[in-house]
Each structure stands twice: as C-alpha cells, then as structure tokens.
Design a binder for these strands. Structure first.
Lengths: 135, 135
DNA sequence: CTTGACCTTCACGCCGACGTGAAGCTTTAG
DNA sequence: CTAAAGCTTCACGTCGGCGTGAAGGTCAAG
C-alpha cells in the first residue's frame, strides 16, 4: 500500500511515516514511480513503533529491534539475543515508571473515594474528624 | 525541623524545597531567625508533592489540593468537593498513561520471554518457524 | 489539463514547568 | 572566632528526540 493508506490505517501522519523511514524504523519497498510501497504487516509494525516510542524507547533501539521480530510476534530472530539486556533494561524502566504513576493514582483514588458526595455523608465525615478539623 | 533535615529525610534538595514554597506547595512556619520551620508531617507532604508532580499534575493543582488534605490522609476537607472533577480527570489521565506503558511492556515482555536462552531451545524455535525464517 | 497523491530537502519548533547556580549576607553551634 | 547552615534575589538551563512546515517538483488517473 502507499503512504496515504498506511497513514489512514495507523493514525500516523504521512510526515511521521516518512520520518520513521528516515530513522530506520520502516524500510518500505519502492514502486517504479518512487512511491513508497508498504507491506500489510507495516500496519502492525507502526503500532509497535508508536507504542514503544510512547513508552520512551529511543528510536535507534527500536530500529535495531524491528528486524529481529518476525511477523508471528513470537520471539526474536536468530542472532538477536544480544538485544535482550537492553530490552530488559527498558522493560524494567517502564515498570518503574508505571509504579510511580500508580503510587500517585492510588493517592488520588483514595482521596476521591473517601470524600463525601453529599451533605449527610459529609456530616458523618466531620464527626469522624472532629479532632483534626477546626470548627 | 529546618530545611536541611527535611532535605535529608525526603531526598529533595534544599533548593527544591525553597522552590516548592515559592510555588505555594509548602508554607513552613518561620523561626525568629527567619529560618524555615517545617512540621513533621511535611515529610509526608513532600512525598505526596513529588509523587504528584512526577505523575504530571501541574503544581498549581497540587497547591490547591494540599490544604484540602488532612493528615489522616482520609478524604478531602470540607469545602473542597469542587476539586473532585479535576482530580478525577487527572486520575483518568494517569490511568491512560499507565495503560500505554503497559501495552509497550507487554510487547517487550512477550518478546523477551519467548526468545530462546540457549542453542538447544533455539533449534526448536527455528524448527517451529521454518516457514517464516529464511535459511 | 487538472487535480490529488507523492516525492525530496532545508530548516525550524518544541517549550514551559521544573529545577538549578551563584553571589552576598545573616544566624547558629561549638 | 569560625564554619556550617540558612536566608534572599536575579538569572539561567533544560534540550534533544520527536515531529512539523513550506517550498518546489514528479507521477498517475480521469
């Protein structure tokens, strides 16, 4: 497919797709006219790229990773086991980021859930906190 | 306590603690000398502030939120229910961010877990993908 | 012919909320 | 006395990876 269709199907702008090629993230074939000719699997590839970019993986690491992925999505290609350490590092970094966000979300959620929604609950709340809430 | 001790106990720099005051996030009492005099509960407050900042909440929202929190950490103070909508919006934004990160992490984790760790498993892997892996 | 899709290249924008650096002075503790 | 700790104020740094804008031209289909 050509770039316009891929853009429509992935939500990426055409400009971004050309940029991804520039960064080595996509290497579409070329039609005789010079038009880019993307494989159907590139729809999924773009999804992976955008997800990994959004998660903070540097594009050069993604560029190294993509040729190691087979379209079954199952494991790395031969010769790519050397990428496991950086991938594990990224995975752990993402986990740490999730944990930090979850800590904040838990704080917000507890505040929200424990705040009275109407005046009757509110009076009970005040009674419960008589010691710490000034009159 | 004074600023140095709070810095040690929270991991924030003294400079950052003064900055938080500048932004209305902390309002320590003052000793006759002019030194800042932090309450013991400020240790926990700084933790909350840093967590919420790290989660992307704007400082002005945190500044509005803090006086609504009682040190029991249980619900919002009276008169603060109007903050619930923005807090819920932030919570939902954080949830979306976590989901995005989790999508990427799942992708990485599946790749890592399914990649053979030694040559014997690797041969089995190759046999399993005979169709899609070029000789 | 005309229109729309696509091509390349050069250059720029982000981008402001968070935090830091340094200078010069005062206070505290020993 | 002295050194460490604290005070204020002015000004600066980030900050580079991701993506965009515009210009000027080619290609394909009706």
């Amino acid at each position: 497919m050509r770039i316009g269709e891929l853009a429509r199907r992935t939500g990426a702008t055409e400009r971004a797709l050309r940029y991804y090629e520039e960064q080595g993230l996509l290497t579409p074939a070329r039609l005789p006219s010079g038009y880019r000719d993307y494989a159907p699997s590139d729809v999924e590839t773009v999804g992976h790229v955008r997800s990994l970019l959004a998660a903070g993986l540097p594009s050069h690491l993604i560029a190294d990773l993509l040729p190691c992925m087979v379209d079954t999505g199952d494991g790395l290609m031969p010769g790519c086991r050397s990428m496991l350490p950086p991938l594990e590092a990224e995975r752990d970094r993402i986990t740490a980021a999730i944990d930090a966000l979850d800590t904040a979300r838990t704080l917000l959620t507890e505040l929200i859930d424990r705040t009275p929604e109407d005046d009757s609950e509110y009076e009970a709340w005040v009674a419960r906190h008589a010691a710490s809430v000034p009159a």
